[in-house]
Design a protein around this nucleic acid. Structure first.
Lengths: 143, 143
DNA sequence: TTGCTTTTGATATTCATTTTCAGTTACTGG
DNA sequence: CCAGTAACTGAAAATGAATATCAAAAGCAA
C-alpha cells in the first residue's frame, strides 16, 4: 500500500513535470509512516529528527503537493493548526472529535455517504470532497 | 426571534457577570441583521459604517461571547477566514460549498442527523455539536 | 559536463487573530 | 447622586501559522 502511494505520487510528479528530489522522498516516507491527522508542526519535527536540514517551507510545499496528488487531505479543527490526513482510495471516513482530550475517532458510514450524494444531486452540485466532524465528549471524558 | 436572541445574550451576560455596553448591543444588533456565514471582516465593515469608533478587537471579542452564549457558531472554510453563523434552536443545517464561486448552500437532513446520533452512541460519545461540509461545483459553475 | 530550470532552506513577509495597556465606562455600596 | 472599583474598549503591538522571496544547490536533458 505504501508502494502504491509512492507510485501515485511519482505518476503525479511525472505528469506535472516535477523533479524527483531527496526531500520529497523523505517527506513522503515519513508522512506515510504517520497516523491520521498530522499537523505540519508534528510532521516537521519528526522529519527534523532523522533529517535535520530539511526546511519548514519545504514541508509545507510538499504537503500541498500530496493534496494535489490525491494522497492527503487538509483538515481544519479549531486549534488553528492545519492537519493532513491520508486518503485511502475508495474509503472515506469522518471524525468524532473529543473536546475533552482532543482524541479523534474515525468512522465510516455508507448510508451517510449515499445521503450526501443524493443531497448534492438535488442541488445540482458535483461533489469533489466532503467532511464531517462531530464534537463532544468521548466515553472516557464523560466521567 | 431577534428579541428572543437578545434575551439569551442578556441572560448569558448576567449569569457571567458581564456588563451591558453600547458596543455589545450594537454588535449584536448588526450580527442579527446579517445573513449566515459572516466573516469578522464583513461584520466589522458593516459595523464601522454606522458606528465608526468600534474597534476590531471588540468585534472579535464579542463574537466569541456570542459563541459562548450559544448564539453563534464558528465555521472554518478553506480561505483562512473564520466565519460566524447563527444558531437557531432546534435547527441544524450543513453546507454545500462551491469551490468555483465560493457560494454556500445550506441544507438540512433529518436522516443524517439521526445516523450521526446513532454513530456517536455506538462509540460512547456524547455529542455537543457537529458540522458537515461538502465541497464541489454548484450547478452554475459546472458549465 | 554544460546549461537551463526547478527546488531548497533561510529568512522576511503577510495576514488573521490575540494580547497589552492606558484611558473610559458600567455597576455597586454608601 | 457620588465615588470607588472592576470590567470594557480602542489602538497599537505581538503572536503564530502560512506564504513569498531569493540566492545557492540540485535534477535533468542534450
Amino acid at each position: 500500500m505504501i508502494l502504491e502511494k509512492k507510485k501515485i505520487f511519482n505518476d503525479f510528479a511525472t505528469s506535472k513535470g516535477l523533479r524527483s528530489t531527496r526531500q520529497r522522498d523523505i517527506i513522503l516516507d515519513i508522512f506515510l509512516s504517520t497516523h491520521q491527522h498530522v499537523s505540519v508542526e508534528e510532521l516537521y519535527l519528526k522529519i527534523k529528527f532523522s533529517n535535520p536540514g530539511i526546511g519548514y517551507a519545504t514541508v509545507y510545499r510538499t504537503l500541498k503537493l500530496f493534496v494535489e496528488a490525491g494522497l492527503a487531505r487538509e483538515i481544519l479543527l479549531h486549534d488553528g493548526q492545519t492537519r493532513y490526513e491520508h486518503i485511502v482510495a475508495g474509503e472515506h471516513h469522518d471524525h468524532l472529535v473529543c473536546t475533552g482530550c482532543n482524541s479523534i475517532i474515525e468512522f465510516e458510514d455508507e448510508t451517510i455517504e449515499k445521503l450526501q450524494n443524493e443531497i448534492a444531486a438535488r442541488h445540482g452540485f458535483m461533489i469533489k470532497s466532503h467532511k464531517m466532524e462531530m464534537y463532544g465528549l468521548c466515553a472516557a471524558c464523560r466521567q
